[in-house]
Simulated assay, not measured.
Amino acid sequence: MKPIHYFSLLLYMSILAACSSKPAVTSQISTDTIPVKVMSLRKENSKFTVAVSGQFTTDDEVMLSFKIGGIINGLFVKEGDAVKKGQLLATLNPVEINAQVQQAKLSVEKARRDYQRTQNLYKDSVATLEQLQNGKTALQQAQQQLSMASFNRQYAEIRAPKNGYILKKMANAGQQIAAGTPALQANGAQADHWMLRVSLSDNEWSMLRLKDEAVIETTALPGQQFNGILSRKAEGVDPATGTFTADITLTGPRPKAIAAGMFGKATISPQQNTQTAANWQIPYEALLDGDGSSGYVFITNDNKTAQKVKVTLGRIDKNAVTVTQGLEKAKALVISGSAYLTHNSAITIQSTVNPAK
């Protein structure tokens, strides 16, 4: 039995030796590279533009109302109607105001008679000088009351202040309306004094000057552009929006298919473009984690690894972002594939784009 035990022991030891002497498997760790597109960098003197949007207006829109309250007798126009200067647009029921005018006339006649009578008595030394002066004052007061009543009767009707259009009707015939309550809204659009009213940020307001040129577009007239100039800048912030209001007046041929309140957009070219310093213009997709004044981008100097660097931002224009600092030592900017990168990631250059001139 002993030879059998020895044989089993030898076989077991041989198996252990074979297991312990199994050659180690060497694994090769391959580093994955991320394909990216890059853009070569160079400073350039770019002409900034300011993109704004707003609504078209004629700057002479007016709310038309009656001077006195009363019952509306008639409204003779509808929304969209063209009107001529002086055209009768609405009237109040004249019964009450006519009665007031007639009452004022009677008061004048009575005051005149009283004054004449006092004059005669004064000549006969029956009336005193004080009575004569009081009679004259009463006559003057009555005349002023008549003048006021006549004025109110004149404005118991609404007439068009200039050639234009009715934008909105806010009352109807038979309705009682208070003095000064708007009944109609009109403008002077027939004079073609159109402008685009826009809002500006603090930075845009300080950068722009009056008479800066602009190009205006509207979705109502696709493919068409109109020239304009910055004609007005507000000197105070609108508390409702926190922005500055500005007007861009259209110059040259006016658009025909346009209406008050229609949306439009404009690109303004500041006059101080000639003093613009050289900076880098980078595409939007290259910028990461921008907070208004700074952000991050990926660059490469060896075309093998990408580095994440912080940059200082200037203006955000219509087609690009301006970088003022942070790219002084960079050779190329990663413009595609940045979302998959971390600092010192290995990259493969798919293509290189040259910045537009």
Rank of each mutant, 00 (worst) to 15 (best):
T276C: 06
D59C: 06
D247R: 06
K85C: 03
Q176M: 04
K43P: 01
T57H: 00
A257L: 10
A138L: 05
L16F: 06
Q224P: 02
G264S: 02
I316H: 14
N301S: 04
V334K: 01
S147F: 09
V50L: 03
D32S: 09
A191H: 09
L210H: 08
Q225R: 14
A286F: 02
L10C: 13
Y340F: 13
I248M: 05
M39S: 08
Q225S: 13
G337K: 03
F226G: 00
D238M: 10
L313K: 04
K78V: 09
M148R: 07
D124T: 08
L221W: 15
S125N: 11
R254I: 09
P35Y: 10
S150I: 07
S345K: 03
Y122L: 12
T181L: 11
A90L: 02
T276F: 12
D81G: 10
R153I: 07
L11H: 12
V334W: 01
L287S: 13
H193C: 02
D247W: 12
T218S: 15
I4H: 12
E235F: 11
A186F: 08
F56P: 00
P253H: 15
R113L: 10
W205K: 12
L92T: 02
K67C: 00
S107M: 03
A24V: 12
K37T: 10
I282K: 03
A127G: 02
G290C: 03
L167F: 01
Q140R: 11
K357S: 07
S150C: 06
A156V: 04
V215N: 13
S53Q: 15
I349Y: 06
F298P: 05
R42D: 08
D212L: 13
V311L: 03
Q55L: 10
A346G: 14
A189T: 02
L132C: 04
N98V: 01
T91N: 13
V108P: 04
G188Y: 07
T137W: 10
R42W: 11
Y340R: 14
G261S: 03
F263H: 08
N319L: 07
Q275T: 05
S294K: 07
T33G: 09
S8Q: 11
T322F: 02
T243A: 15
A257S: 14
T219W: 15
V126P: 03
L139A: 14
Q87R: 06
V309Y: 00
A99D: 02
L9K: 05
A332Y: 08
E44W: 15
K265D: 14
N98K: 05
Q272W: 13
Q272L: 10
T31H: 07
Q176S: 11
Q175I: 08
A183V: 12
Q272P: 04
F263K: 03
S30L: 12
A160M: 11
K308Y: 00
L121C: 10
T26S: 14
I335L: 01
M148S: 15
W280M: 04
Q87Y: 06
R159T: 15
V38G: 01
E204C: 12
N152R: 07
N203P: 05
A240G: 11
A246M: 03
A320H: 09
G188P: 05
T91A: 09
S21T: 10
K233T: 05
F66R: 00
K357P: 01
I258E: 00
L121T: 09
G174N: 01
Q185M: 04
A332E: 09
I349S: 07
Q87C: 04
Y115D: 06
T243R: 13
R153W: 05
